[in-house]
């Protein structure tokens, strides 16, 4: 059975899946991604709608992505057009969040680099992620 890796893109950036999960095929992987997304977003849908799971195979190739908004039960009542535009909006927000977090990381890296050059202490990690 193939191993699938479910990497999470949340509001803080990428959180990679170290172990992976053995699943029968892509269909089972999609079902798993849907469940995981729903468990992560349950009762806080509004804040997590722009998160996504990136599912990779053993070679590291992206098989598919699951946007949380696309599996959000609380949106099931919406008419399809409205829902589609809400999903698009969530996707854009997700992209924006990634861009902002990348910018922030670049700024912190520059600060760290400058401090290191001057032999001063510097911030090495933030939120458990190395700068």
């Amino acid at each position: 059975m193939p191993l699938y890796y479910f990497h999470l893109h949340d509001s803080k950036g990428l959180s990679s899946d170290p172990d992976g999960t053995m699943l029968a095929d892509d269909v089972a992987a999609r079902a798993h991604a849907r469940r995981v997304a729903q468990e992560l977003m349950q009762h806080r849908e509004l804040k997590t709608r722009h998160w996504k799971l990136q599912v990779c195979d053993m070679a590291g190739e992206v098989v598919f992505e699951t946007l949380f908004a696309s599996v959000d039960h609380t949106l099931d009542q919406l008419d399809p057009e409205l829902r589609a535009s809400l999903e698009q909006l969530s996707r854009s927000i997700g992209g924006l969040v990634v861009a902002i977090s990348d910018c922030r990381m670049t700024i912190m890296q520059s600060h760290a680099l400058l401090a290191r050059a001057e032999g001063k202490p510097y911030l090495a990690t933030v939120d458990g992620r190395r700068i």
Binding site: F6, L8, D10, S15, D17, P18, D19, T21, H32, R35, V36, E39, L40
Partner: peptide, 8 residues
């Protein structure tokens, strides 16, 4: 919950 979820 799924283990993947708990890991995150």
């Amino acid at each position: 919950a799924r283990r993947t979820t708990v890991t995150f």
